[in-house]
Amino acid sequence: MPHVTVQPGTKQRPIYQVGGKSFVFFRNPRPDAFDPDTGERYDDVIVIWVADQGEKLAMVQDDSSPFFTTPHFDGHPSVLLRASRIGEITYDELAEVIQDAWLSRASARRREKWLAENLPD
C-alpha cells in the first residue's frame, strides 16, 4: 500500500500507518486478551482497523472466524487477530482485510487515487 510508514511500537512491535494514522499494529500482551483455559495473555495479537462497526460485527460474530474483539475495544473500529491463527484465512482474504484497513485510515485523496488505480472498471 502506498504512503505507509512503519513506526517502532513498544517492545519494537511495528505500527503501520498511513498519513500518521495507524491501521495495523502488533499489540503487547494485555489482560483483556487471554487464553480462557490457562489465563495466559496472548502475545501475538494484531489490531486491524475496519471501516465501521457493521464490518467489525460481520468479522467477529462468526465463531469459526479467527477475528475477535474484547470489551476493551468496544466502540473502536478495529478487530483483533492472533498471529498464530493467520493461517486460517487465505492470502487474498488477508490482503483484502489489510487493504480495507488502509482505506479506512487513508485521506480521501489517497483513497480515491488508490481505488481508481486498483479497482477494475
Rank of each mutant, 00 (worst) to 15 (best):
F23N: 02
V45D: 00
D92M: 05
H76T: 01
T5R: 09
R109G: 08
I98F: 15
R111W: 14
R27E: 15
L119V: 13
W49T: 14
A51G: 11
T70K: 13
G9H: 10
W49P: 04
F68C: 11
V6Q: 05
S65P: 08
R30K: 07
R105F: 10
F34S: 06
Q7H: 13
W114D: 06
E96C: 10
Q61H: 13
D52H: 12
P120G: 11
G75I: 00
Q53H: 15
L103C: 07
V60E: 02
K113P: 05
D43L: 01
T5V: 03
V45G: 02
P8I: 01
A95F: 09
G75L: 02
E88Y: 05
P77N: 09
I46D: 00
E112L: 13
P2H: 12
V97P: 05
P2K: 15
D63S: 03
K21Q: 12
E55Y: 08
D92H: 04
E93K: 03
A33F: 02
G75W: 01
A95T: 09
A106P: 04
E96N: 13
G9Y: 11
I46Y: 00
P8A: 12
A95S: 11
V47K: 01
Y42S: 03
R111K: 15
E88G: 10
Y91N: 03
K21S: 00
I48K: 03
P71K: 03
G9E: 15
T70E: 12
A101Q: 13
G39P: 11
D74M: 01
E55Q: 15
V18G: 05
M59I: 00
R27T: 15
Q61W: 03
S84C: 08
Y16Q: 05
Y42K: 05
L81R: 10
R111D: 13
R30G: 11
V4A: 02
E96P: 04
